[in-house]
Write a protein that binds this DNA or RNA. Structure first.
Lengths: 236, 236
DNA sequence: CCATGTGAATGTTTTCACAGCT
DNA sequence: AGCTGTGAAAACATTCACATGG
């Protein structure tokens, strides 16, 4: 078993190199602090609740009280925040204003993001007119539709363009976020056009599984699935 | 330590009774086959994909191929289905039609459910006019709004009623599912009225954490949170 | 031989529980 | 004295891998 270097077969040497490579990876100093996506998805609710508290004049809150308002456990809030740093004061709790600002910075909400919307039917209309965008960091910067009589319309200073303009306009404006509100049959094509234009985050309202390249983030808005999964719990 | 029954203090006896009660629960023969909610929430996508396959004339599918279409692992699909029974044929796969029908029965989609919608602004409008309800098991049976000039309008045979009618109408029609599309400030009150009328499943579009009694199922539709959680992954 | 259904292993998320700081 | 931040434990979810049956 005491093989020296010259005795090694090529295979043995290869396996040895692989093992060392793995060892090296394992020893890596900063093992990339991967933050679970499920934690990221909870942060917006923390922001919203912290804003509500400030509107009520509350300047400080404990993880216990915040948890009560949100309907989760205090330990979960503390663990979630611990992925990003130490934002609380022991014995005191968290400053609502400071914590809100810190989480907004983590989610990169401390700047404005242009958004492209494709699909200007009744759903697209509701999205475009939704004023909940306003206090947030998103600005509707482009709207696309396939229907000729929608094209040219002006919505808060944004002209509805033909779907064929999708890739070009998104690239020209440097838009990174796309919202898909077209029928299922058109959604994949729209997604491809958006990605071709440089979009790396897609909010999809169409009831279809989108195929996207690595590195493009996707969130689904699927009320029918939500309803269907609730019916399970109803009494017969 | 060898205390007999007559020596016991009331507290000791109480604790003993509690312990025995717990032991009894632990010994329970059928330990209630609790199905994880996360499994329930995946079933609608399986149904949708199985419908699509049938539309394409595909009558049989393996867990491997189904997984590829949905973007999950084959093992996950097989595990999910195993909570409910054995629906496949070894060496063959699953009948798309049979599996679809079985999952629909599990989710109680093999009957029609009346739904109440509160909030008839642009969002409520988009929901009410959404034709994706049609091939599904849901029928919009009541619409409520606060705004006087919306009340009385007829939407596909359903008259928009004043919000004050919520509890009464829901009770009278036996509606179990409510959709909340009102502003955040009104959402809790609407939820309370719906629950008072007998609703046990709520689809909430308002950006607020609802407080609901045990036994009421809740799903959130929150596009702003979805956007905010995607921005995290964008390049600066 | 192929693909399901499922014990066992692995990976992830939540919760416990408490040391330590204010 | 009170509440955070976090190791360690527990609970939960996913994936592996294969015996089993058509």
């Amino acid at each position: 078993m005491a093989a020296n270097t010259t005795d090694r077969s090529e295979l043995t040497a290869l396996l040895e190199r692989r093992r060392q490579a793995q060892d090296h990876v394992a020893i890596e100093p900063d093992p990339i602090p991967v933050i679970p996506d499920i934690v990221i998805r909870r942060l917006p609710i923390y922001i919203r609740t912290l804003r509500d508290l400030q509107d009520q004049g509350v300047s400080s809150v404990s993880s216990e009280d915040l948890a009560g308002l949100i309907g989760v456990t205090a330990a979960q809030i503390r663990r979630d925040l611990s992925y990003f740093g130490r934002f609380g004061k022991q014995g005191k709790g968290y400053s609502t204003r400071y914590l809100q600002q810190r989480i907004e910075a983590i989610l990169k909400l401390d700047r404005q993001w242009d958004v492209a919307l494709s699909g200007f039917g009744s759903l697209g209309n509701a999205i475009a007119r939704y004023r909940g965008f306003e206090p947030s960091s998103y600005r509707l910067a482009a709207i696309f539709d396939h229907t000729s009589d929608q094209i040219g319309q002006d919505i808060n200073g944004v002209r509805v363009q033909d779907t064929s303009e999708t890739t070009g306009t998104i690239r020209r404006l440097g838009i990174k976020i796309g919202i898909i509100a077209v029928p299922a049959s058109a959604a994949q094509e729209v997604a491809d056009q958006m990605v071709a234009g440089g979009v790396t985050a897609i909010l999809n309202y169409a009831p279809v599984v989108l195929r996207l390249p690595e590195g493009v983030t996707l969130r689904e808005i699927d009320p029918i699935s939500a309803l269907q999964s609730m019916t399970f719990y109803l009494e017969d």
